[in-house]
């Protein structure tokens, strides 16, 4: 099949960007979306142009490196799928695709489709951990964890920090990401001692990084490749409220 691509090209942070048009020919339905771009890139290089830069690494949907907007949808049209796992059989001959980087003031464009997602790391730095000095941990089975809590923690821990939630949210909020980590650690007995300081610190960092607030639109949940639920934002909100009113951390 043959596709018409409009791809955002931008040489560096702060540079003017623009859409460039390309034609992707002989696209096989078995290609992944990134493989389709690989082929386009090989042609660009042969032609003496610079290839389209995009982040990627594992190409298995787990590292969270990849991600951009395809026709206005983060990671493309398939639910629960990263763009590296999106295959071209989801498109038809002649389709026209607009490919844009994540747009958020907190995620400045570095080049083409690559954005700077380091604010997500800083949100984790603010409190997304359980403090335990290596070697000082108690025997693992000393604290039983109800299976339901373990499962909830795991559901929330599946987040890959791809940033699609921020990209999808009309307010460019990273609450889904933040809520997922707060829920993961808050669901486990090991996470209790730091639970309330964690939520306050993480939300403060979230706001300081320039993300928008959450107005409970739910676009993030639809975009999330790992099925992270907006319920976790509710849990974060509840934890913050408790931190403010019941806990010394407030």
């Amino acid at each position: 099949m043959k596709l018409k691509l409009h791809v955002w090209r931008q040489n560096g942070p702060g540079n003017e960007g623009r859409f460039e048009d390309y034609v992707a020919e002989n696209v096989s339905e078995h290609m992944s979306f990134l493989e389709m771009l690989d082929v386009v890139n090989e042609q660009l290089i042969a032609r003496g142009d610079e290839p389209i830069a995009f982040d990627h690494d594992c190409r298995e949907g787990i590292c969270g490196s990849c991600g951009f907007m395809i026709n206005g949808e983060p990671h493309g049209p398939l639910p629960s799928t990263t763009v590296c796992q999106l295959h071209m059989r989801n498109y038809r001959d002649g389709d026209e695709l607009w490919i844009e980087p994540w747009r958020a003031t907190a995620f400045p464009v570095i080049r083409d489709l690559i954005v700077d997602r380091s604010p997500l790391d800083r949100i984790v730095q603010a409190g997304g951990y359980i403090s335990v000095r290596t070697g000082s941990a108690p025997e693992a089975n000393n604290i039983a964890v109800p299976k339901a809590n373990a499962d909830l923690a795991m559901d929330a821990a599946e987040c890959i920090a791809c940033g699609a939630c921020v990209a999808a949210c009309p307010n460019a909020s990273a609450m889904l990401f933040t809520g997922a980590k707060v829920t993961h650690l808050g669901a486990l007995p090991q996470g209790q001692p730091e639970r309330y300081t964690r939520v306050v610190e993480m939300v403060t960092m979230h706001d300081d990084e320039g993300f928008g607030h959450c107005t409970n639109h739910g676009a993030c949940q639809t975009a999330c490749p790992k099925n992270i639920k907006v319920d976790y934002i509710g849990r974060l909100n509840a934890d913050l409220r408790k931190a403010k009113f019941r806990h010394p951390a407030g």
């Binding site: 460019a172 320039g210 928008g212």
Partner: peptide, 13 residues
């Protein structure tokens, strides 16, 4: 705040 958080919009959204 939300306006500032997405200062540049999408071509398609």
């Amino acid at each position: 705040r939300s306006r500032k958080a997405r200062a540049i919009g999408y071509r398609k959204y």
